[in-house]
Design a protein around this nucleic acid. Structure first.
Lengths: 219, 219
DNA sequence: GCGCAAACTTGCGTGTGCGCAGTTTTCCCG
DNA sequence: CGGGAAAACTGCGCACACGCAAGTTTGCGC
């Protein structure tokens, strides 16, 4: 499922993709994001600048991808790993918190880098949307054949909630006008994620109940 | 609220913005989207090409903006217009369906134009996100001071659901090579919107109850 | 092994997005 | 009514994203 075709070709592709994003992050940290051109990134990865654009559609995307990696696949896998009996809402929240809390073995200075530039901020928040499709597939598997459309909506909502949580997380660093002290400055990321995901619990529970009722699917 | 500063300056700004997007749409319909350059759009609106980019960050955005106009503000206003007693979920759904069903006095050929090019499709779906902030403000007003964060999440989810509905709406046109007849996707747009928004009802109701809870006893 | 088809890479050219600094227009208050 | 400040418009320049049409590599069946 995750690797429909495993051959030399596919491995090479993943290798260049990884090399590309690692090079992008490393150079951005070394020189600052404005002093690195796509030419440099491509050169460091050993490919042509044109090929770079076959993998990433913007510089910010490549840099951010080095941090987020294949987080979306891991979230989906973690949700799928929970036994079928456990409540879906909790499984999703746990999986997301776990995967987003994992530092991923990267320099903490990366966060400061991302929060500093608006385009990097935007690209980082955009990565939250990437969990939508994998998550939709997993939720759909839970809900059965009757809830495909429903699963898509729920996954989109989860992705949206995650994005909100990330926004709040790096808001203080983004802009710090006189509004300090009005709202809670910034909780920990796990807390922010759970707070943002909590409102969706009723919707997810209702979906589970609706799917279990009329369908009674027997695979 | 909608016009914090109403002066000559602000009116001129709106005028150029409108001229810009109308010109973009008209030229795109006349020549096809690939045969229109920003230089042409800016020229037709009577401004410099550089100024064009001060209003829209891409060509697709300008074209699509001519269709969506200030839909987000109208949705928020419609929700705010409902009396305070009415259930929030229904008010939101009604407002969205009403505003998105309104043709806006535009050529039906526009839809075919938007569905044909991927970048226009993307920009069109992106407009769904623009209802997020106005809607968050309105929902926050309903929920009171305790539910600011909650309102933001709910608004994001509503926006996400609307995007899903729009995706489904113009999905068949985007993929099927079948030249057979018109773009009649699976279901009318109002139905798709209500279907996509329905799963959120439990979450919205729970939010209403939670907001009303601390203040007064639950029924 | 062999050769063909599909997938990937690459160079080129074009239009585009946007930062920057200077000029012009609008605002506002004394 | 005048003058200074803030905001918007504009020209310039640069790097970038991406379509296109080659050339190159991988996969696969015979």
């Amino acid at each position: 499922m995750t690797s429909p075709r495993s051959g030399l070709r596919e491995r090479k592709k993943q290798a260049t993709r990884t090399a590309l994003r690692e090079a992008a992050l490393r150079l951005a940290l070394e020189r600052g994001p404005d002093n690195v051109r796509v030419e440099d990134i491509a050169g460091a990865a050993g490919v042509s600048p044109r090929t770079y654009n076959n993998y990433f559609s913007s510089r910010a995307q490549a840099i951010v991808a080095a941090v987020t990696a294949e987080r979306e696949a891991r979230v989906a896998a973690a949700v799928a790993a929970r036994p079928a009996g456990t409540p879906l809402a909790g499984a999703i929240a746990d999986a997301i918190v776990t995967q987003y809390t994992d530092p991923g073995g990267h320099d903490p200075a990366v966060l400061l880098l991302i929060t500093s530039r608006p385009d990097l901020r935007g690209a980082f928040l955009g990565t939250a949307a990437s969990i939508e499709h994998p998550l939709a597939a997993v939720i759909a598997a839970r809900l059965g054949t009757t809830g495909q459309d429903l699963a898509q909506v729920l996954a989109a909502c989860v992705a949206a909630a995650v994005r909100i949580a990330l926004e709040r997380w790096l808001r203080p660093a983004g802009l710090s006008p006189a509004a300090s002290g009005l709202v809670v400055p910034s909780g920990s990321l796990p807390d922010l994620l759970r707070t943002a995901l909590a409102p969706l619990t009723p919707a997810i529970q209702a979906a589970e109940k609706a799917a279990a009722g009329p369908g009674r699917p027997a695979p």
